[in-house]
């Protein structure tokens, strides 16, 4: 079953120096449970592709669908609803709210779907334990190491049981040992929970975790390989 599908997806930015063709006619497909890695040099459009697929920015042309739902022309509210119910995010900068504790950060996606507070608590505790943060639940992000913050971010991405997780350079701020730990964990949840992961990375080591590997160059798909 295709969970991700794009057709001639393009994105043009208006910059003070002129138009920037960030994505050019990207067409790709990924099946449910895939681990998609997107690589390419800086400015090749990796992050733009990831954010467009995640419904965070709109394409200039072309179409894309997630879980069979065409999201190219839906309203902002529909996109937001889709994200809160089906999508998890892991960012290089961790994207944690600085004044919320680890567990409060993890509860946020559940609060948005107005889940009962007791269930919010039990789910957040469970997922934080899963990522090995059971002992640091009440710590603020600034009281945690980079690796621990990324674990909290992963816990937040997992807590609403998403179908797909978008990860933008999730190991970019981590040392090699921690990077491997995080990547192993992502691979584990990809295989164990059948969650599709789309990950942007600079690292060839990280790219090797993917079974679908896309290499972008100048906004175009340079190569796309499928291990399956």
């Amino acid at each position: 079953m295709n969970i991700l599908h794009t057709e001639n997806l393009s994105k043009i930015y208006h910059h003070k120096d002129g138009l920037v063709n960030a994505l050019k006619n990207i067409s790709l497909t990924a099946e449910k449970g895939s681990f998609v890695t997107i690589t390419g040099p800086s400015g090749s459009g990796k992050t733009t592709l990831l954010l467009t697929l995640a419904g965070l920015i709109r394409p200039s042309s072309g179409s894309f669908s997630l879980m069979g739902k065409n999201l190219s022309c839906v309203s902002d509210s529909e996109l937001a609803l889709f994200r809160r119910e089906n999508v998890g995010f892991i960012m290089q900068s961790f994207a944690l709210i600085p004044y919320l504790t680890a567990i409060q950060n993890v509860k946020l996606p559940l609060a948005l779907i107005k889940m009962n507070k007791a269930i919010q608590q039990s789910k957040a505790v469970e997922v934080l334990k899963t990522v090995g943060m059971g002992e640091r639940m009440n710590h603020l992000p600034r009281e945690l190491s980079a690796g621990q913050q990324q674990r909290v971010a992963i816990a937040r991405a997992l807590v609403n049981a998403p179908s797909i997780i978008f990860a933008d350079e999730p190991t970019g701020n981590l040392d090699p040992k921690l990077s491997v730990e995080i990547l192993d964990f992502l691979k584990a949840i990809n295989q164990k929970n059948n969650i599709t992961i789309v990950m942007v990375t600079h690292s060839p080591v990280a790219a090797d975790y993917g079974n679908v590997r896309i290499h972008l160059d100048n906004g175009e798909i340079n190569t796309m390989t499928n291990k399956n």
Binding site: L56, D76, S77, A80, L81, F82, R83, R84, E85, V87, F89, A95, L96, I97, P98, L108, P109, L112, R156
Partner: peptide, 16 residues
């Protein structure tokens, strides 16, 4: 801005 972006990213409506 960044926090608002995070909230929007995880599915917060504009109205929220």
């Amino acid at each position: 801005k960044k926090e608002i972006g995070i909230l929007r990213m995880i599915g917060c409506y504009k109205s929220e």
